[in-house]
Design a protein around this nucleic acid. Structure first.
Lengths: 258, 258
DNA sequence: CACAGTAATTGCTCTATATGCAACAAGGTG
DNA sequence: CACCTTGTTGCATATAGAGCAATTACTGTG
C-alpha cells in the first residue's frame, strides 16, 4: 500500500529502494533510517525493511562507528562494470595519465546524460587542491567547460531543455543570457575547445575539448581543471592545444578519422 | 506472490531487483529480459516490470544498438560516492600514480569484504597487457597477492571460512594445502609483503603490501600486477621494497605511526 | 513481402505481500 | 533513573506484485 502511488506502472517498493539509494550523496554519505524516512516521505518501517533488504545484498551497510547507513561495496562492483563497458573508459586512461603528467592538472572524461554532464573518469594531479569533481558527479551543462563542449555539439532539443530548466547565476561570470550562451557555444564549436572562467565555482577554471566516435559524433569531452591561479587566461592558448590533441588522440583510438 | 519466498522478512520485489542488478557482470554486461528471467528463475513479466522501474531511475538502460539492457549511470554516480567516502581512496591516488610511473606496472588498492578481496582503486600502466582486474572486482583471498596480505592479517575466523569454502586449484602454483597456506601467510606477515606467483591466473604475477589505519589495523593492501615476464622472480626483492614503501606512505597519510 | 519464430509488454485475476500503525526494544542524555 | 530519540517487529488490511496468457513488437528467412 502507498499514498505515493502509481504514477506509472512501476513497482513501488523497488522504486522506493532506488530512491533510497539515490538519496545518498557526496554531501550526505551516511544516513539514519529516520533521516531517509523524513526526506523521502516514507514510513519508518518501510525504510527499515527496505534497508535490511538492501543490506542483505551489500548495497548498503551499517557503519559500526556512527551506526548510520552507507552505500555498500556491491555498488562499487557494479560501478566497475559500468565503466569498463564504456569504450571511452578503456581508451582514455593512458591519454589522461599522460596529460596529467605533462600539465600537472587534474583531467577527466565526461559525457552528457539527462541534460547534465556526468564525469566518468578522473586522473588526479598531485597538487593539494583537488576533489572538486568525482567520478559520477553531475554538473550543469551551461557553465562548465565539459558541459559547454557537449552542449555545443548536442542537438537543439537539449539546448532548449537546458534553457527551460533555467540558467542559474552560480558566479559572477556564469553566462545566463540565452542569446549570449548560444553564440558562445557556436564559438566553442568553431575553435574546438571551451574554457570555463570560474563560471561554476569561484576560483576554478577548466578547459575542455570534444571526443568523437567512429561515426564522428561527439560522445564525450576531455577536460582539465584547476585553480585560476594555475589555469590563467594567458595559458589558455597553450593548454587548449594540448587538451585538443589529447582529445583527438582518444577520438582516433575510438576509430574516428578526421 | 512468489515461490522463491521468505527466507527472511526481506522485501521480495526489492530483493529481485537487486539480484537482477547483480547478475550483470564483467563477462555478461548486457542482458535480455529472457536471459535474466532464465538465470534467476523469475517470471518474464516480473523481470520486465522490474527492469522498467530500474530504468526509470537510471539504474539500467536499454542499449539502442543491441536492444539489450546495461547497467546505467546512476550506478556510476553512487559508485563515486562510495569511493570518496573511503579515506584510503583519497590518500592513495597520488601514491599509486607515483609507483605506476616508476615501475611501469598497474597498481591497485583493495580491501577485504565478505571473505574476498575487492579492488577499490586502480591506476593502469600504459602497457598493452591490462584489464586483468577492474575496480569493484572480487577475487579469492588465498591465491592473489592482495588477498594473501589481507588474509594474513585478518582474524582466525576469516581464515577458517576461507578453508571451509574450499581452496580451489586455479593454476599449478595455487596453494591448496591448508597447513602450507597457513605457514605461507605467517611468512607474509613477517616479511611485510606477499607475491603471487601465477597462483590465480597463468602468466600473471603480483606483489602486495599491507596498509594500516591510525590504529595500526590492516585495512587495505596495495599491489602491483603484471605479466610474469615483467614481474620476474629476480625482481621481486626490488619491487617489493618499493611496494612496501608506497603502502607505508599511504599508511602514514592515514595517520599510522609505525 | 509475408510468415515464422523469438522476445517483450500488458490486461487480468488472485493471493501473497508490502504498508502503516502501534507497541516494543535499545540506546543516549540530561 | 526517567525521558527522549531511533530502529525493529507483530499484526491486520488493502494493495500491489506475481503468474499466466494473449498481444504486440521485432528479426530474420524462405
Amino acid at each position: 500500500m502507498a499514498i505515493q502511488t502509481n504514477e506509472e506502472n512501476y513497482l513501488s517498493s523497488v522504486k522506493n529502494a532506488l530512491r533510497i539509494l539515490r538519496c545518498f550523496s557526496m554531501d550526505e554519505p551516511e544516513k539514519k533510517i529516520s533521516d531517509i524516512s523524513a526526506s523521502l516521505g516514507l514510513n519508518k518501517s518501510t525504510v527499515s525493511r527496505t534497508m535490511s533488504t538492501l543490506a542483505s545484498e551489500g548495497f548498503v551497510f551499517k557503519d559500526p562507528e556512527s551506526k548510520k547507513y552507507r552505500l555498500g561495496l556491491s555498488i562499487l562492483s557494479l560501478g566497475g562494470i559500468v565503466n569498463s563497458q564504456m569504450d571511452i573508459y578503456r581508451e582514455s586512461q593512458p591519454v589522461l595519465n599522460k596529460i596529467v603528467q605533462e600539465l600537472g592538472e587534474t583531467a577527466h572524461i565526461s559525457v552528457l546524460d539527462n541534460n547534465e554532464v556526468i564525469y566518468l573518469q578522473k586522473v588526479e594531479c598531485n597538487h593539494p587542491v583537488r576533489f572538486l569533481t568525482h567520478v559520477g558527479r553531475r554538473n550543469p551543462l551551461y557553465c562548465t567547460s565539459s558541459g559547454k563542449v557537449l552542449l555545443a555539439h548536442a542537438n537543439e532539443e537539449v539546448f532548449n531543455t537546458v534553457l527551460q530548466k533555467g540558467l542559474e547565476q552560480h558566479t559572477k561570470t556564469t553566462i545566463i543570457k540565452p542569446e549570449k550562451l548560444k553564440s558562445h557555444l557556436r564559438q566553442i564549436k568553431e575553435q574546438g575547445y571551451s574554457w570555463s572562467n570560474e563560471e561554476y565555482l569561484e576560483g576554478v577554471n577548466s578547459i575542455a575539448s570534444p571526443i568523437h566516435d567512429y561515426k564522428g559524433r561527439v560522445i564525450a569531452a576531455l577536460a582539465i581543471v584547476g585553480p585560476k591561479q594555475r589555469i590563467q587566461q594567458s595559458k589558455i592558448k597553450g593548454y587548449s592545444k594540448r587538451v585538443i590533441s589529447a582529445a583527438n588522440e582518444i577520438s582516433s583510438r575510438m576509430g574516428y578519422w578526421k
